[in-house]
Structures are given as structure tokens and as C-alpha cells.
Design a binder for these strands. Structure first.
Lengths: 232, 232
DNA sequence: CCGACTATATATAAACA
DNA sequence: TTGTTTATATATAGTCG
């Protein structure tokens, strides 16, 4: 049985306080739930006991995160500040690093030199000279490689050319491949795929065959007969 | 008067619902407050009405932010994710920019050149050469300035020296400034403040006056008589 | 830490101001 | 909207198991 009016002040007895906490907590959550259902509201209750135990109520069909998100949006309270400030600090540092790096690059592009003293200029000069040399060496090496590659390509192109010429000679000698004289000048194109990306075409003038049908092709230097095209 | 057992289901009448919401909300907050006081707990209630009106209760001596912070720490719910992800994205972008800038700087230090093709190398080379020249010009100019400054300083030092000598001559001639011969050798120090940061002291040997009291000081090159000290 | 009991204290629906 | 009133429903302190 209840003993008179309940005084709203801290319950000193630890056990009683614990019991009351538990009972009233359930009562509170029940009320909150009734409110949710009766009035179509969304309620979030977060509570910590005196011993820092967490208990929470959240209306059905929603989440605490959702409520807190909404709370943050609607109220002016900067609920996030703790996390936010930490992140802001990180961001600030990154932006500063960024700025410093940009300045360094600018100086390496010859801008913003006013800020540098003589010692800094001297070391930057030295640095620039070293890098300049390094880059030049690298460029020369790269050019060398390119020349090598080109030479090899030329070599393989010459081989292909020779093969083609050889084949043409064979066909020219073989009646089965005899070319029809239709009275006009036209070109026949033989496509050749190399390296999967560039196509080379060997083009030859048929009138040559027309006029000299039995003349064998054998000269690699027959530039008036065979033209080499790089198809892009 | 209450009409039978209250059904816990949504109140369809808009007005009644609103009234009940208001009354029960107060009841809930009252209970929450009682709980706070009786059991020494901390309670945060955040609620939204069906019309999305925000109401909140928070125990005295604490803040909603504090409760949410604690909630985030204790529970596994990533209450911050919305904000957090936005910040993370910003951070990620900054880090990437940062990385790119660093790569650029490295290339301008002659590192990581492997990744560059011939065109990039060519432009980097040109850039390096230009900057190298700019920096050299700047260095030369800076050296020029330095020499100018030094010359001016020397000039002004010479002036000061002349003035001092002049003053000494006057004093040597004026009996009022006559120096007492106390039989010992000692130095008298005249302090002179220049540019507010460096002090120069003109030190002269009194025995000179002792032995040749009427001898006028006039030679700037009298290094055995006047010593010039740079006091740090 | 429940759950149950019970005498009271409180809450509240409805109606009205 | 908010504050009564009032009949009832609910909540709960203290106690026991």
C-alpha cells in the first residue's frame, strides 16, 4: 500500500532507487508507446541510470538515428559538434598541407618567388638545375629508345614489303592469278594488319601489269610501282 | 469523466488527437522529470507530433547533445553516419588532391619520372629550364640587393665613425671633458645604438690621452687608438 | 532480479470555460 | 489554445514470495 504522498526527491536507498528506476522506466516507456499509437507521434527516449546503464525507447516504424537526424535538422542544437569539430580539424590540416604543396609547386614553376630568401632561392636553383638535368637525360634516353623502336619497325616493315613483293612475283607468274584488263586504270588494295592498331596498305598500279603483264616484280626500290601508305 | 477503458489506438478525430498529444506529452515529461529526480537518472526525450512538431525533454544539469554523444559511445548505432559520410567524402577528396600534388612535386624533384611519357617529359623539361632561369635571375638580383645594402651599411658606419672621431677631438680639446689620470689603464666605453638591434661600441685607450693629452684625433686609420666592436 | 498484491496517488478523457 | 472539473483508469511504493 502506498504510504502518503510520494515526495519527488532523490531516493537515498540504493536498492529502492534501483527498483523505482526500473518500474518507472517501464511506466514511462509504456506512456511513450501509448502516445505514439494514440497520437500518431514518434518518440525517442534515451536514458542513463545513476549507474550509467543505457535504456532507450523508440516508436515503432522509426529509428533513433532518424529521430536524432531530424532533431539536428529542426533544432538549432549542434548535436554533431564533437564529431564535427574533430573532422573539421582534420579537414583544416589537410587543406593547409594542400596549400603548402601548391605553394611549393608554384615556386617550382617560377611563381611566388618573392617570399623566398637568398638561401631558399639558392637551394631551389640547385634543385631546379639537378632536376632539369635528370629530365633532360631521361628525355634523351627516351628519344634513344624511340629511335631504336622505329628502326626495328622499319626493319619489320621492310621484311613485310619483301614478302609482299615476293608473293606478287609468284602471282604474276601464275596464270591462275592473271589480272583482267578492263581497259581502265584502277588500283587494287591489299590490306595488311600490323600490331593490331595500324594498318599498312600496299598499293600497286595495275596499269603496270596492263602494259607489262609479264614483267616480274623484283626490285624493292621500285617506288614508281609500289607505294607504301600508313593508314590511320 | 472517463468513458470506460481507454483503447490504445490512434485517435481519429484530429482535434482530440491534438489535445491528447498535448496532455499526455506533459504527463510523459512530468514522469520523466520525476524519474530524473527520484532515481538520479538522465533522460532525453525527443518527439515529433503527427504534424512534425518537435518537443523535447532533457533532465536538468545535462544537454541533449551530451546524451546523444553518450548514446553514440555506448550503443553500436552509428548515429553520425549521415554527417560522417559527407565529411569522409570531403576528406577522401582532399587526400587524393594531396597525393596528386605530392606526385607533381616529386616529378619536379626528378623522382617518379618513369610514369611520364615523352611529351610530358618534354614539357617538364621546358618548365624546369624556365624556372631554373627565373630562379637564377632572382638569385642574382637578390645578391645585387644584398651588396647594395652592405655598401650602404658600410657607408653609414663610416659616417658614424667620423662623427665619433669628431666628437672625441672636440672633447680632447675641451678642458671640461678633461680625463682624470688615476694611474691605472682602463677603458671607457661609449655606447652607440644603430638600427635598434645592434650596438656598436667605440672603445678608446685612455692612456693615449694620458701620454699625449693634447694630441688631436684625426686619423680614421688610427687602429691602434680606436677599436671598433660589434656587440651582439 | 522478477512478479504479485494493494492502498493510494496520479493521470487523463470528455466536456466545458 | 489552455485550464477547469470529474469519474474512472492507471501507476506505483512498499512489501512479500
Amino acid at each position: 500500500m502506498a504510504r502518503g504522498k510520494i515526495q519527488i526527491k532523490r531516493i537515498e536507498n540504493q536498492t529502492n532507487r534501483q527498483v523505482t528506476y526500473s518500474k518507472r522506466r517501464n511506466g514511462l516507456f509504456k506512456k511513450a508507446h501509448e502516445l505514439t499509437v494514440l497520437c500518431d507521434a514518434r518518440v525517442s527516449i534515451i536514458m542513463f541510470s545513476s549507474s550509467n546503464k543505457l535504456h532507450e525507447y523508440i516508436s515503432p516504424n522509426t529509428t533513433t538515428k532518424e529521430i536524432i537526424d531530424l532533431y539536428q535538422t529542426v533544432s538549432d542544437v549542434d548535436v554533431w559538434s564533437t564529431q564535427y569539430e574533430r573532422m573539421q580539424e582534420t579537414k583544416r590540416k589537410l587543406l593547409e598541407t594542400n596549400r603548402n604543396l601548391r605553394t611549393q609547386i608554384k615556386q617550382r614553376l617560377g611563381e611566388c618567388l618573392d617570399e623566398l630568401d637568398i638561401l631558399e632561392l639558392r637551394s631551389l636553383e640547385e634543385e631546379m638545375e639537378n632536376t632539369f638535368k635528370l629530365v633532360r637525360e631521361r628525355k634523351i634516353k627516351s628519344l634513344g629508345n624511340q629511335i631504336e623502336t622505329t628502326k626495328k619497325k622499319n626493319k619489320s616493315q621492310q621484311d613485310i614489303q619483301k614478302n609482299l613483293i615476293h608473293e606478287l612475283e609468284l602471282r604474276a607468274e601464275d596464270p591462275h592469278y592473271g589480272l583482267v584488263d578492263n581497259g581502265g586504270d584502277y588500283d587494287s588494295v591489299l590490306g595488311y594488319q600490323i600490331e593490331g592498331s595500324r594498318a599498312y596498305a600496299l598499293r600497286f598500279h595495275q596499269n603496270y601489269h596492263h602494259h607489262y603483264p609479264n614483267h616480274a616484280l623484283h626490285a624493292a626500290s621500285a617506288s614508281d610501282i609500289i607505294t607504301f601508305h600508313l593508314l590511320e
